[in-house]
């Protein structure tokens, strides 16, 4: 008898388009549930945290709804977490978007605006918008299902600056090296939007589906 597909909590806290994320997860054979209550996050086989917009408002909204604790508990319980865009940034220690705001501190490092100039001193257009190549590295289980390099869609003005290089499992080039994907154990997060990245996005979500299955 075929087992039911893993249930993935897509955390809805009013920041970003949870429906297209849910649709994209379903396309990869998962059973997404768009959820706004902590209990549903704790129940799921995996947690996906999407999000676009303002870091400070997003962090406040998650705390107010008790969702940040629920996500931490799911992480402690070893449920595979996939963060998208703000879902990556919130893992770090703080962001300076509209004043200093603490993040969750699950990963060491900070979130900062792109500099106005690149490493060579040439002006850098910020936000970083469009398709950029990401090279994957390291041996995280998610990566076994991915090509070494793929193109994804980015739209962001702030980016994570991890404190440790071994957290960075995907690198893009924008004004210098950009941490496009970070991971540690059951946490995997990307700065780009797989739900907007056509077939390369599907490959990444397929890899997530495979990893969730392994972790069950």
């Amino acid at each position: 008898m075929p087992t039911a597909p893993p249930v993935i909590a897509v955390v809805d806290y009013g920041f970003g388009n949870v429906r297209s994320v849910a649709k994209a997860l379903a396309r990869s054979g998962l059973a997404p549930e768009v959820v706004g209550d902590p209990a549903a996050v704790r129940r799921a086989d995996g947690v996906v945290l999407p999000g676009v917009g303002n870091f400070a408002d997003a962090a406040a909204s998650l705390r107010e709804k008790g969702l940040d604790d629920a996500v931490r508990e799911a992480l402690s319980a070893g449920r595979p977490y996939l963060g998208l865009c703000l879902g990556l940034q919130l893992l770090f220690e703080d962001s300076d978007e509209h004043g200093q705001t603490p993040g969750w501190g699950i990963l060491p490092g900070v979130v900062r605006r792109f500099p106005a100039r690149d490493a060579a001193g040439a002006p850098l257009r910020v936000p970083h918008i469009g398709w950029n190549q990401v090279r994957f590295r390291g041996d995280h289980p998610m990566l076994s299902g991915l090509p070494e390099e793929d193109c994804y869609y980015f739209v962001h003005a702030y980016r994570a600056v991890p404190a440790r290089d071994d957290l960075v499992v995907g690198v893009a080039d924008y004004g210098g090296e950009l941490a496009a994907a970070v991971a540690r154990e059951r946490v995997f997060a990307v700065q780009f939007h797989p739900e907007k990245s056509q077939m390369s996005g599907k490959r990444l979500l397929d890899a997530y589906a495979g990893w969730v299955e392994q972790c069950r």
Binding site: V52, G53, N54, D57, E97, H98, P127, I129, V155, H156, A157
Partner: peptide, 8 residues
């Protein structure tokens, strides 16, 4: 942009 961020 103060509310939603400038990227969008």
């Amino acid at each position: 942009t103060a509310r939603i961020g400038s990227a969008n």
